[in-house]
Write a protein that binds this DNA or RNA. Structure first.
Length: 345
DNA sequence: AACACGGCCAACCGCCTGAAT
DNA sequence: CATTCAGGCGGTTGGCCGTGT
């Protein structure tokens, strides 16, 4: 025989907890501690099963739970951890003090996942969505002549061809590096060892990519101490028509865009050489920036001004601003991944 | 004011693993 | 060794609430 049943399951209450039930549970745990969820409800005078009590305590009543909106740093941490751990919410929660797995799971499904999809990023693989590449290809063909936005309100970050190449390179790198393989053991959907040998990007030189990564202008880098939440004064300043008053720690989106465009036009990086030597690539493959042009024109948040696409990038800004930051960092991250992999050796 | 709709999130469901018997 | 269950986890649901019409 096995263990005896923990409790009589008939007649137990389900559904939302009342304040009275919460108080009973808190009082009991404060006096006796928790651990034996099997006997706890009976001892605490609750008509609930132990499982329900454990969940209520862990997700809501625990005193060290942090409430309120997720910070920019927390959000970036979730995205980065999810790219490595997948849907291991408890493992992700273990690295975010005060946040529960349930809360992170809900936040992912209601906010982050949708935003990644809107950005054309597969929230499962964190790679560009292959199902959008054909659409992106059509839209990017008129990239130079007309800065139109696509159905998501943004320009493609990179060309379809480059996305495909990056995706295949990343997938080969992920399968080579055990630290980047999901814990559930599932392989990357792009896994194909032969792609590495066939990929023309392999002919890029290490120095070219290193130069590219180092010189891409930064915007709101992760963990940058200068990227701090808006104070009320700063928010007020952002609403003022005189944009010269904006604190220097904030990066004006137009400045960032101009910097990036200047960089791309700079002779320091010989794009033409790459284009000339790679028959699969064209000049369109190196246009990254105009997706910013339609950002924040409709937002009424203090982080944005409503005219002329004036948005500011800092550590605690609007969802649009977070998209810019994430796009930029994702772009740099992808190239760093390519460089870090040993496929050039 | 009434209704419809969609977003959010607390709580439940079902499965898996390891421990107890 | 087989059986049974507690605890833990991820997926899903249903009700509440805000917003739009």
């Amino acid at each position: 025989m096995g263990r005896s049943p923990c409790c009589e399951k008939n007649g137990l209450k389900k559904g939302p907890w009342t304040a009275e039930e919460d108080q009973k549970l808190v009082d009991y745990i404060q006096k006796n501690g928790y651990g034996n969820w099997r006997t706890l409800p009976k001892n605490a005078g609750l008509q609930r099963c132990g499982k329900s009590c454990r969940l209520r305590w862990a997700n809501y009543l625990r005193p060290d739970i942090k409430r309120g909106r997720f910070s920019f740093e927390e959000e970036e941490t979730i995205i980065q951890l999810h790219s490595v751990l997948g849907n291991k919410w408890s493992a992700i929660a273990a690295r975010l003090p005060g946040r529960t797995d349930n809360e992170i799971k809900n936040y992912w499904n209601t906010h982050i996942r949708k935003r990644l999809l809107r950005m054309g990023i597969d929230p499962v693989t964190h790679n560009p969505r292959l199902d959008l590449l054909d659409i992106s290809s059509i839209l990017s063909s008129s990239f130079h002549s007309s800065p139109h936005t696509n159905m998501f309100g943004v320009q493609p970050l990179v060309s379809p061809e480059l996305l495909r190449l990056a995706a295949s390179l990343l997938s080969s790198h992920h399968t080579q590096n055990p630290n980047l393989v999901h814990q559930n053991g599932q392989g990357n959907q792009f896994e194909n060892p032969h792609q590495v040998q066939e990929n023309p990007l392999l002919q890029f030189q290490n120095q070219d990519l290193q130069t590219l990564i180092q010189e891409i202008p930064s915007c709101a880098p992760l963990n940058n101490p200068n990227c701090v939440p808006f104070t009320s004064d700063q928010s007020a300043q952002l609403m003022e028509p005189n944009v010269d008053q904006v604190p220097s720690s904030l990066c004006h989106v137009n400045d960032w865009q101009n910097n990036l465009e200047n960089f791309l036009a700079n002779d320091n990086y010989d794009f033409q050489h790459i284009i000339d030597t790679q028959s699969n690539l064209t000049s369109n493959d190196f246009n990254f920036t105009s997706h910013l042009s339609n950002i924040s024109t409709t937002s009424s948040s203090p982080a944005s001004l409503n005219s002329n696409s004036t948005s500011y990038i800092n550590g605690n800004s609007t969802e649009d601003d977070r998209e810019i930051s994430y796009c930029s960092n994702l772009f740099k991250y992808e190239y760093q991944e390519i460089l870090d992999s040993n496929v050039f050796m």
